[in-house]
Design a protein around this nucleic acid. Structure first.
Length: 478
RNA sequence: GUCCCUAUCGUCUAGCCCGGCCCAGGACACGGCCCUUUCAAGGCUGUAACACGGGUUCGAAUCCCGUUGGGGACGCCA
């Protein structure tokens, strides 16, 4: 049987980092097994769904390189892929269950049920309200709004074998007559997901562990319809640093936020893939390696806590290593961040030359754009503190002399320049410390930068001399 | 409360299935040292974990039972 898996996001705001992990595992398994990766939009909750959210989710998935074989935009044999466009399908299936006595109409209003829930909570805050089955055996069909409920079995167990957790058994007595369809005719998650997964011929469902409780209900539905359930693979939870459910309230959880922070797609994917899965001690993987190495038997069962620092380090590793990110790629990625600083069309050759010195100290692309800034700004922006501390009247003559030394340089390369610099420093009875920092501020406007002579090489002779000359003026009049 | 799941350094994890190579390895974070004109990077190094209690066994992080801790689900959300 061919493998078919799906990612079924509800477009209610943004792409959650935890969902990305489930999607990544799904995508990897599909890629390595010639499977089909289906994207289905679960927009049945009209109040929470929006076109903008859909666009944001699709956009983030594309940015991550998690492309889908069937779904919005690419379409496919099981269209439509928006649940809001499949209402007729759900309705027909629901009618079938009702006519077979496997589901029934319930006329209890939300208000009535909420009131009962309140009363119960007031009496015992820890108790859970269970639908009492008021309409279970009701014979009349009043002309009133209704929801459709599933007639759950009260005895026996519902079992399934999870690819990660193994055998899971749930007593049916724990199940209540859950709602399949709301008053407004829209299906609820369990109904819609079950019908679509079957109709779209999904063979393996991978999702967060928070869905384990939905699985017995869905299996009950598969059976009611006379269908064969797919396989399931649940993933341990990614919790916040505090051990709570990861949400907006306790950190950055949307892909967009990391994108804006200047993480790369592989940086994001690498952190997420190692969360709950591993391949020995290996920490950094290419996309191809992941496709080759990923498998369910190395997925852990224990929940984990999200660690921003580790995440940042993994992202940095991706940026730092030339084997992971080529200079050309780096250049393309950093340009939008330079643009944000007002540097619109940076000199391509200069950018390519400057990146090697910057990549090992810039943890994100935002940092990289900051570190690269001075190369493209003429004059460079001076850091006030650095200027006041190092460009003083006392150093003006040194910088002036240094400029002459460099002006006389025959070869414009780091080593000879450094040799000339050192020779002059010694001859003048000074130390590197006395002049290096002023020179750095003169060339970069800052007190921290890549090595001085690398900066000079990248900048070129005319720029270097010009910046030194300007610094002499600034220092004199300080 | 009911049901389900889970347990190795502060965090992500290797090892567990197929007991001995583990007085438990890697990475992040934290501390020290080295390198160094700055900031980084890099190298070396330190602190730090098998939740607890019982078994089984010559031998248990690894197998079994119990306890405790943690998490999730219980919605006309997904």
């Amino acid at each position: 049987m061919t493998l078919r898996m799906r990612f079924a996001p509800s477009p209610s705001g943004y792409l959650h980092i935890g969902n990305v992990r489930s999607t990544l595992f799904t995508w990897l398994w599909c890629k390595s097994h010639g499977g089909t990766f289906v994207l289905r939009v679960e927009d049945t909750d009209q109040e929470r769904s929006s076109i903008d959210s859909v666009r944001a989710v699709l956009d983030d998935l594309k940015w991550l390189g998690l492309h889908w074989d069937e779904g919005p935009e690419v379409e496919g044999p099981f269209a439509p892929y928006f649940q809001s466009e499949r209402k007729g399908i759900y309705r027909a299936h629901t009618e079938q269950l009702i006519s077979e006595g496997k589901a029934y109409r319930c006329y209890c209003t939300k208000e009535e049920l909420d009131a009962q829930r309140e009363t119960l909570k007031a009496a015992n805050p820890k108790a859970n309200f269970v639908y009492p089955g008021t309409c279970r055996d009701r014979k009349d069909q009043p002309d009133l709004p209704f929801v459709v409920r599933f007639r759950s079995p009260t005895t026996g167990t519902t079992d399934f074998t999870d690819k990660v957790f193994g055998h899971i058994s749930t007593p049916n007595s724990a199940q209540q007559d859950f709602v399949l369809m709301r008053t407004d005719g829209y299906p609820l998650y369990n109904l819609a997901a079950t019908i679509d997964d079957h109709l779209m011929e999904i063979t393996l469902v991978a999702r967060g562990r928070d869905h384990i409780g939905n699985t017995p209900q869905q299996i009950l539905l598969y059976r009611a319809f006379g269908w064969e359930p797919p396989e399931f693979a649940h993933l341990p939870m990614m919790l916040s640093a505090k051990g709570e459910k990861l949400s907006k309230r306790n950190g950055s959880v949307s892909v967009k936020e990391y994108r804006d922070k200047g993480f790369t797609p592989m940086g994001v994917l690498n952190y997420l893939v190692r969360f709950g899965w591993s391949s020995g001690d290996k920490e950094i993987f290419s996309r191809e390696e992941l496709i080759q190495l990923f498998s369910w038997d190395h997925v852990n069962k224990g929940d984990g806590k999200f660690d921003e620092k580790k995440f940042a380090d993994v992202a940095f590793e991706q940026l730092k290593q030339p084997t992971l990110t080529s200079i050309e790629q780096y250049s393309e990625w950093v340009k939008p961040f330079l643009a944000l600083r007002g540097i619109e069309n940076p000199d391509e050759a200069l950018l390519l030359k400057a990146i090697p010195g910057v990549r090992e100290r810039a943890r994100t692309l935002v940092d990289a754009a900051h570190d690269l800034d001075f190369y493209f700004r003429e004059p460079p922006e001076f850091d006030e503190k650095a200027r006041q501390k190092f460009l003083t009247p006392a150093v003006a003559p040194h910088l002036q002399a240094l400029r002459s030394v460099f002006e006389a340089a025959a070869v414009w390369q780091a080593e000879p320049l450094e040799a000339a610099f050192k020779a002059w420093v010694e001859g003048a009875g000074l130390t590197m410390k006395d002049v290096a920092q002023p020179a750095r501020v003169a060339l970069t406007g800052r007190s921290a930068s890549p090595p001085l002579f690398d900066v000079m090489t990248v900048l070129g002779k005319p720029q270097t001399l010009a910046r030194l000359a300007r610094a002499v003026e600034i220092a004199r009049s300080a």
